[in-house]
Design a protein around this nucleic acid. Structure first.
Lengths: 220, 220, 220, 220
DNA sequence: AATGAATGAGACTTCATTCAT
DNA sequence: CATGAATGAAGTCTCATTCAT
């Protein structure tokens, strides 16, 4: 407008244009955001990197997500939801025993669809920055807590069942949380040194050492 | 965007003598950088946040560090060196047995001077961003490898000594590396949920379950 | 910074640089803002139009005024203060009689340094936009009120002195306020149709018709 | 920037039939434009604010007005035409005497349908911006001139009839033009301080002081 | 006629870097 | 050594305009 008053309206190049349902566009943009964060980090992720990857225009992000902050947050929420649904499903599909359920949750953390280097990069990008951590906690905390509590319950059941003399269930559950994070970080940082399978086995080995009658040690 | 994240500046001018030896200035600026990254993240850390915290002028950073990239890298190197020297010293000061040495290294990771929330924030800031990770690996990898190899050696010694039937030493050492990272991340993200002491105990409990004759389980 | 992490720092062209005292820079930028608003309106005034006119860089506006809104407001405040000081001075320098003082205020409104087309353009730019009017009132109202009250007092004195049977002093003062605005708008909109001198005479003629014994009618 | 100024949107969707004759749509959109300019100023008026107020889609503006510039201009023309028709009608409906006709024109300027704050806001929005002023003059000048010339004629008639020794008719007519603008601006800027009625009386008082035998002073 | 998703130029703002003092 | 005003590239966001449906 301001421009209009000074010089005259600019002509516009015609481009192939397609209107897609909002979910498709949002999904495209979230995928591109994951891609961009994996490649350049959050700091290196700009509206341009995202839209270039998506093959869409910058204005569209604002149209669908209002602003960059939202795009990032919704990307995180998308991953959290995906992660949550995945281990929740695995948990419910698992056998009846507590140890089967617990292992299902462990496995879910290293499932090839969940434990991608790209997706890990996004998680750790949010962990890595002071300001983002607040956002992370606001958005994700509840989900993490749910899993933590569930793990405690399962461990308690196993301890009761086996009559184990081990640290309290909450300590073991906290250990698991630490291991998920730590091993995933190692996968992210040292791709050659440790694989999803090995990480999974690390945790199974740990659980086997704690609950030897219930959980079998993996072969290394 | 960054502004949104970086909540409010907490300036903290310290009077500075007009002329200081370079090492003092560099140290001041590195401290301020740690402070700033802890408070605002790398993305929210600008030359201004750093120099304001340090009570110095922007030009000075350029004088002492050439540019921002260098300042960040040297901050990371400073922390890495501090960390390295600390566990190296602990390792050498420890008793003669392998388990004492191993525990000394573990303890070093949760020593109050090393395992500060501010310093953890800096580590995870570097882990969190794709571009930084490359830098990190270039600068720090050797140190990590040294510790990893050392841990393997110690574990092998303990295994040999105790005749344990456990996963290979490298697996246990990798587990330790994962636990350092994972538990420290938990300390950083959930300050109320887990303390340095508890994290340390988590690892001791793990080692106790693997090497019961050599390492005593902590009380919870 | 973000850029730095991806590609490398860009070289910088060297330019003649001079550091001026802040007041000088601020003044330059305010002058340029007046110029720009006069030429393009507020809507057409961008950071670029202002800094191009001033021959300075865009970043400098932010350095000295924080943001555009401030620049505009301080420009308005500058004009208001200039205007205020001018008629205040004229009022105090005037003869002892009420009519002399009143005419001094009138004259001040059409003084060549005050009643410039450029400056009028800025005033009316602020009058013209809903949002700006609020700003205007917040910043300037007090000054307008002061003059209005002063005019009422002077008119009352003249009425008392002459024993005039005329509308209340407040009505005459309000009329003056309306005339200042209306005639200045006419000067702004129809430069060929009415001059400062003529506008001034319009008001003098009006006052002469109200206070014939005290104020002489101008010749047309 | 504009957003800062435009406080909060007050959407007001009216259900609209799918297809309306062009005049209806144009009228709807012009009304919405007036509403929007009054609320947000020209700078804060976007295609969206207008179409939201009208309860129509953005594309429709382009369909009916080609572009924003046209919409604004036609809004101004609409107001000008309305204003013109109103005082022209009042002039023709008035009594036979010159003073009756002159007062009819004066009254028309403060008629409740004409002298709305919303409509005044639009006028002054156009006065306020350099670029718009040119547009204004191109579109409206003739109408203003017509009224100015008419006023001169009427004043001359009254002067001749009363044998008044007053400033030339053109000076009085110019004064009237100035008063219309100035008092309307005061109504716009200081809604509590001056009403339409009072503004009208201000002008009548002025005319009464110039043409005492023909025009009666209002009571205050 | 009407809709509104999509585009992209351009505005505002931030901030690393430079350099006169 | 030290300062901080100045620069300008780059990022975010807005919004007039287009056009497939």
């Amino acid at each position: 407008m301001n421009k209009t008053i000074r010089d005259q309206a600019a002509p516009r190049k015609k481009a192939a244009r397609r209107t897609e349902p909002p979910e498709v566009r949002r999904s495209q943009l979230i995928d591109a955001t994951i891609e961009s964060i994996a490649a350049y980090g959050i700091g290196g992720t700009t509206m341009s990197t995202v839209t270039e990857i998506a093959g869409l225009s910058v204005g569209l992000v604002n149209f669908h997500f209002e602003n960059k902050q939202n795009l990032l947050e919704e990307t995180l929420v998308f991953l959290a939801r995906e992660h949550h649904e995945h281990w929740k499903q695995a948990y419910m599909d698992a056998g009846l025993s507590a140890q089967e359920k617990l292992l299902a949750i462990v496995d879910a953390h290293f499932h090839p669809r969940i434990c991608t280097r790209k997706k890990l990069a996004v998680w750790y990008a949010f962990f890595g920055e002071a300001g983002r951590r607040k956002v992370y906690r606001k958005l994700i905390d509840g989900i993490d807590d749910e899993r933590f509590d569930l793990s405690i319950g399962l461990c308690e059941e196993i301890i009761r069942d086996g009559g184990y003399d081990v640290p309290p269930a909450s300590v073991i559950a906290r250990m698991l949380e630490g291991l998920y994070d730590g091993l995933q970080l190692n996968i992210l940082m040292y791709p050659g040194h440790i694989t999803r399978k090995q990480a999974n086995n690390q945790i199974r080995a740990y659980l086997a050492s704690v609950f030897p009658q219930h959980i079998a040690a993996p072969a290394f």
